Simulated scan of single mutants.
Amino acid sequence: MTALIRTRATRTMQTVRWYLRELTGEAEYDRYCERHRRHHPQAPVPTRREYEVLRTLRREEHPQSRCC
């Protein structure tokens, strides 16, 4: 019974961690790094800060309609 509770607790924590990573955008950066390594294997991967700057510039250059 203890193993079952531990398994459920572990699964719950993994789910919470996944959700928080998606919510904060950390998972988006990880996906970007994987894609960058695949398409540009020789180029260095931008740091998180560099990625955020690039992302902000892209959003400013290509605005999408927003409600507010």
Rank of each mutant, 00 (worst) to 15 (best):
M1P: 03
T2M: 12
T2E: 14
T2Y: 08
A3E: 12
L4F: 06
I5Q: 08
I5Y: 05
R6G: 00
T7F: 11
T7A: 14
T7R: 14
R8M: 12
A9N: 09
A9F: 04
T10H: 06
T10G: 03
T10L: 11
T10D: 06
T10M: 08
T10I: 08
R11N: 11
T12I: 05
M13G: 00
M13C: 05
Q14N: 14
Q14W: 05
Q14F: 07
Q14H: 10
T15A: 14
T15G: 13
T15C: 06
T15F: 08
V16E: 08
V16Q: 12
R17I: 10
R17V: 05
R17D: 03
W18I: 04
W18E: 09
Y19W: 13
Y19V: 09
L20V: 13
L20W: 01
L20R: 11
R21Y: 08
R21F: 02
E22Q: 11
E22M: 05
E22I: 03
L23F: 11
L23G: 01
T24E: 02
T24F: 10
G25D: 01
G25C: 03
E26H: 11
E26G: 03
A27Y: 02
E28M: 10
E28W: 02
E28G: 04
Y29R: 02
Y29W: 03
D30S: 13
D30E: 15
D30H: 10
R31Y: 06
Y32A: 15
Y32Q: 00
Y32K: 08
E34A: 15
E34R: 14
R35S: 09
R35C: 04
R35L: 11
H36L: 02
H36Y: 14
R37N: 06
R37I: 10
R37C: 11
R38A: 15
R38N: 03
R38D: 10
R38M: 12
R38L: 14
R38K: 15
H39W: 07
H39Q: 14
H40W: 12
P41G: 02
P41S: 10
P41F: 04
P41R: 07
Q42H: 10
A43K: 15
P44W: 04
P44I: 07
V45R: 01
V45A: 03
P46G: 01
T47Q: 00
T47G: 06
R49Y: 09
R49N: 08
E50P: 00
E50S: 10
Y51D: 02
Y51N: 00
E52A: 12
E52S: 05
V53G: 02
V53W: 05
L54I: 01
L54N: 09
R55E: 11
R55P: 00
R55T: 11
T56I: 07
T56E: 15
L57S: 06
R58W: 13
R58D: 15
R59F: 04
E60V: 07
E60Q: 15
E60M: 15
E61G: 05
H62L: 14
P63S: 06
P63F: 01
P63H: 01
S65R: 12
S65C: 07
R66D: 05
R66N: 04
R66P: 00
C67E: 12
C68M: 07
C68D: 08
C68W: 12
